[in-house]
Write a protein that binds this DNA or RNA. Structure first.
Lengths: 180, 180
DNA sequence: TTAACCATGTAATCTGTTACATGATTCA
DNA sequence: TGAATCATGTAACAGATTACATGGTTAA
């Protein structure tokens, strides 16, 4: 079982989902395309970690709604107690910044402006997601406890907001100090 | 040419390096093992983007010191003006947090404590690196300009420090609010 | 004496992306 | 009419990790 498989199980602890749902939901935390998710779901099913129900739909294609099994939950609990791998980030921007000194100020300005715009768009998305969560939990995010199914989503969206604001601040610092 | 190849060229704009040096230097911005770097260097050399000089050493194995060519610099300049890919982060911690609600408080405490320790170690490393940079540029980091070879390193280490402090703050918030 | 560092490379495997394949519905 | 969404899958390829391979020096 690889990390993405555990990630899929992790999302299924909150609610049953189709492969398509999982693809959309995991997107905030892990980049994975449907072509990677569907085969892993089939394997998880084969190994008894998940089960699915065929749901027929009108106006939309039929779907397989997956839910986590007792075996799957036990695997998740085991995984939670094991050491966690360090995060891996791959950001072309950092590589470009490292050699931006050989370029002209206009190229540098564009690089920073594009990155600022990206973070601002990201911040808007995260704030919308936070608002959605507020509605889902019934208005009061402060009422969320460690044992609420939305504990992870709430704290992680908050983390994303803090992280994105820090990045916008950093972009501003660079722009003000060297590119104005 | 893939992103890592440009990353290697990017580092070589600042100073000639061996493959081993490049592995150590790129580590702060991009995760890559030597087994990926050596073949790419051979390809870059074949395509005329870099050249190397065999440096014989006593007490240490001989090494190939690579430097960027005119062709390589032109490729970098072209790359700098092209659109930049969005960052990709893969962090097992976020997947675990998403389903920590099904676990017990002790597991949650350990998960957060480990992550806090990781960020604190990272912060120390970054602060040391910043101090190194201060020495390299002759004492005054404020004197760095857009056209200094250390512009990228300086601004990126600062970014890392800000980012890591934000993460430590977030870990503290979660711990204080739910795990004390 | 054992681990870490320096230094370079290849082979096997796993992970992740892009492309191929299908097809109805809905909105602009 | 064309793009986006919902929905699932496979195949080919690219990117990244782990393991295999070698071997001297240095510090705990």
């Amino acid at each position: 079982m690889n990390t993405l498989s555990y990630g899929l199980l992790s999302i299924l602890t909150v609610a049953p989902c189709s492969g398509y749902d999982l693809m959309l939901k995991i997107h905030l935390f892990w980049q994975a395309k449907h072509s990677q998710i569907y085969p892993l779901l089939a394997e998880l099913e084969k190994d008894g970690h998940v089960q699915f129900e065929l749901v027929e739909q009108t106006n939309k294609p039929d779907k397989k709604v997956y839910s986590i099994t007792k075996t799957g939950e036990a695997a998740v609990r085991q995984w939670l107690s094991e050491p966690t791998a360090d995060p891996v980030t791959r950001d072309e921007f950092t590589l470009k910044l490292y050699c931006i000194w050989i370029s002209d100020p206009d190229t540098a300005k564009k690089l920073l402006a594009d990155r600022t715009a990206m973070y601002e768009a990201k911040l808007t998305k995260l704030e919308n997601r936070m608002e959605q969560l507020r509605v889902i939990v019934g208005g009061d995010l402060g009422a969320i406890t460690l044992h609420s199914p939305y504990f992870g989503a709430y704290t992680l969206v908050q983390r994303g907001i803090m992280y994105t604001r820090t990045n916008i601040e950093w972009c501003g610092w660079v722009t003000r100090t060297w590119l104005s």
